[in-house]
C-alpha cells in the first residue's frame, strides 16, 4: 500500500513536471535509465562475469542497495560513484526495470 502511494506521488510529479514544460512524458524512462547500467551489468542486467547480475532481483533489494551505495552505508568499489547520480524516483524506475527482467 505504502509503495503504491509513493509511486502515485512520483508519477504525479513526473506528469506535472512534464505538463508544466508542455512536453509529453518520456514513454520509456526505466528502459533508458537502465541502459546506463548494462555496460557493466550486462544487457537487461544479465551479467555473466564478476560483476553481480541484477536481472530479476527483488525490487526492494535493488532500491535498498542503491540507497546504501548512495549514502555510503554499503561499501563498494564503484557503485557509490554511480548511485549518487540518481534521485529516489529514478532509483525506483531502475528497480522496476531490473526486477522485471528474467535472470540468465
Amino acid at each position: 500500500m505504502r509503495r503504491v502511494a509513493v509511486l502515485g506521488c512520483s508519477l504525479a510529479t513526473l506528469l506535472l513536471t512534464s505538463l508544466c514544460e508542455g512536453a509529453e512524458p518520456d514513454p520509456h524512462p526505466g528502459r533508458y535509465l537502465a541502459a546506463n547500467c548494462t555496460g557493466c551489468h550486462g544487457t537487461q542486467g544479465r551479467s555473466t562475469g564478476a560483476i553481480p547480475a541484477i536481472a530479476g532481483l527483488d525490487r526492494t533489494v535493488i532500491v535498498e542497495a542503491m540507497r546504501a551505495f548512495r549514502s555510503g552505508d554499503r561499501p563498494a568499489t564503484v557503485m557509490h560513484q554511480h548511485a549518487k547520480a540518481y534521485s529516489e524516483a529514478q532509483i525506483e524506475l531502475l528497480a522496476d526495470y531490473f526486477a522485471a527482467q528474467k535472470p540468465l
Binding site: T38, G39, C40, H41, G42, T43, S47, T48, G49, A50, I51, T77, V78
Partner: peptide, 12 residues
C-alpha cells in the same frame, strides 16, 4: 571487476 566489465560490455 575490470575483467567482468569487459565481458559485459562486449556482450552489451
Amino acid at each position: 571487476y575490470a575483467e567482468g566489465w569487459a565481458q559485459n560490455i562486449w556482450s552489451d
